[in-house]
């Protein structure tokens, strides 16, 4: 079988490809940042002992960790409007799903990072006469953050790939753009290979970065 590759035809509309890449990157950065903000607050709150705070937060984390992201996005777009009586625009429904999903994982990463700092370090800080806030800021967080960075980078890599799910609500990210170009050119081989290559080029340096961070933390 001799397939004649025609990349030029597929790549002709450079603007459209760039647009898709920009949307993918924007969603990745915005939802990762949003997720980290959620993670810091929920993670800190989960460290406390007040059940009326921790119980709902644990519920949030488990619901978003244990259901498919695809369902969350579709649910915010198609199902939530029925409850609220008004519909969210596709870009918001998808962004909400992605952010809350990332937030659930970040909460867990943040909580686990702080918990990983041994009791002895807390006691050493207390023994010097530090209050809870000082102890957190000077002793616990500086150590915990170092341990959180590798899992956060890994989760961010996953998150960038997850933005491909924007496809289902027709937000024109890299994946959705590819499907449109395919429909117009009838060249799925070239289009999807190109899309995969672009994702790879964006993510491979990040994985190298994550690996380097991990070896540095081991030291």
């Amino acid at each position: 079988m001799h397939y004649h590759w025609d990349l030029a035809m597929v790549l002709a509309d450079t603007d459209r490809w760039w647009h898709g890449i920009v949307i993918t990157l924007l969603y990745s950065v915005a939802t990762v940042v949003g997720g980290i903000v959620i993670g810091v607050f929920c993670g800190l709150a989960l460290l406390g002992r007040k059940r009326w705070i921790t119980l709902p937060l644990e519920g949030y984390v488990e619901i978003f960790r244990c259901t498919p992201l695809l369902i969350q996005i579709v649910w915010f777009y198609y199902a939530l409007p029925i409850l609220l009586n008004f519909s969210l625009p596709a870009w918001l429904a998808a962004g909400l799903g992605l952010t809350l999903y990332m937030g659930a994982f970040c909460t867990e990463i943040f909580r686990a990072g702080v918990m990983s700092i041994g009791r002895g370090q807390w006691q050493a800080g207390r023994a010097l006469g530090m209050t809870y806030t000082r102890l957190m800021r000077r002793i616990v967080l500086p150590q915990a953050v170092r341990r959180m960075v590798p899992p956060l980078v890994n989760q961010s890599i996953t998150q960038l790939k997850n933005t491909a799910l924007l496809y289902v609500v027709a937000v024109p990210d890299l994946m959705y753009t590819s499907s449109i170009i395919t429909a117009e050119t009838y060249r799925p081989l070239e289009v999807y290979t190109t899309a995969a290559a672009i994702y790879f080029i964006m993510l491979y340096p990040l994985t190298l970065f994550a690996k380097r961070l991990e070896t540095r933390v081991d030291r």
Binding site: G120, Q123, A124, R126, A127, L128, G129, M130
Partner: peptide, 12 residues
């Protein structure tokens, strides 16, 4: 409590 502890040295 923190002020009290700051007056006492502890080695673990």
């Amino acid at each position: 409590l923190a002020a009290y502890r700051s007056r006492i040295g502890m080695v673990f």
